[in-house]
Design a protein around this nucleic acid. Structure first.
Lengths: 193, 193
DNA sequence: TATTTCTTTTGATCTAAATCAAGTTCTTTC
DNA sequence: GAAAGAACTTGATTTAGATCAAAAGAAATA
């Protein structure tokens, strides 16, 4: 159940087998089915979620009722409403399972205890955050500078698996275009090949 | 020269005066004048920069020659091309001073030594990164969901000082609109009041 | 396996913001 | 402090992508 977690930790920090074993105890395993929600906007995020298997999406809903996908989280990724999780404020993001998903849940308290007991985890999380920032910055530049077709092609290059696994409406939302435009772009791109 | 740095560290982690003092030695002070560059895309980022005073902008240039402002960094903020700094790859961002600016430079080696010697700095950087992620995610949602006018109003609410200090073309670029549109929006908003 | 519901495609129309093109005003700098 | 160069404003025109509408295709539910 903790294979992916152990794998991602080992790829970033040197840990003894015993340390790795002790990490596991801070997490609560959980499985949810497709279409179920981990978090609803307005509630407080009690956990950060590590995805062992499956696929999640987190999204916000704007004043016009339009959804905006902030993140897809496939196996090996973390997700939550970070602000809500850290501050206890109401969450602004909803988190839904796109596939049946196996998770490891970490409460704020468990995380604090873990960081206390295993300070090397600080480094793991810092590196994790650094990578997140790098890709968020790239996404912003992409959003600002690319056409609908270019955005789609970039997604093909960066996340081909998510393109296969997530419904097109959610991919459109992630890219910041309408499902209609995505459909037309896909047709265009498939002809072009 | 290290006032702001000490202030932001103290706001996130408990340090003794001696520890705080020892932090300072890892940084190289530097002043640059308005319009000078700290980093050019294509070079390797040798430093992360902490802004003690002044204002920077980092931006990328796309294939059509359009600039896209990724970040404004006023006093108390960090900036760099994080990817280049960490991996040694070529930078994709340019960093320019919008005002005469006082900086504290940190090399990768100095950062590693500092984290080694003062592990509590891991926490400081992790918290810093967390906040960055929260605001980058919000910016993405804003970029996807708001009209030009709404983006401008949000900037008025979030960063009123930067709106005063940075030229409009750079603000337009940060918001993902053209300078012409920003000019019209500003007129609109000023009449509306 | 039928039926209902959700998702994707296709077409027609509309619109916010981009682009193009002058003017105007504000900054450098010599 | 005058000239040159940026930056900003204003107007006319264009356009990528949104919106609206309806049909076709999948997938969930019974």
């Amino acid at each position: 159940m903790h294979e992916k977690l152990v794998e991602t930790i080992q790829s970033k920090v040197r840990f003894t087998p015993e340390e790795l074993e002790s990490v596991k105890h801070f997490f609560i395993p959980k499985k949810i089915r497709k279409r179920q929600y981990l978090l609803n906007a307005g509630d407080v995020a009690q956990y950060t979620y590590f995805v062992e298997k499956g696929l999640l999406r987190s999204y916000s809903v704007d004043d016009n009722g339009h959804e905006h996908v902030v993140q897809f989280a496939p196996e090996g990724w973390w997700t939550s409403d970070m602000c809500s999780f850290l501050t206890g404020d109401k969450a602004v993001y909803n988190i839904e399972a796109i596939e049946d998903t196996e998770l490891l849940l970490l409460t704020k308290q468990a995380q604090d205890e873990m960081l206390e007991k295993l300070p090397k985890m600080e480094k793991y999380f810092r590196l994790l955050m650094q990578n997140a920032i790098i890709s968020l910055q790239r996404r912003i530049v992409g959003t600002l500078s690319l056409s609908a077709e270019e955005k789609y092609k970039r997604m093909m290059a960066l996340y081909p698996d998510i393109l296969q696994r997530a419904p097109q409406q959610h991919i459109a939302s992630f890219l910041g275009i309408t499902p209609e435009t995505l459909s037309r772009v896909r047709k265009q791109v498939s002809i072009g090949k």
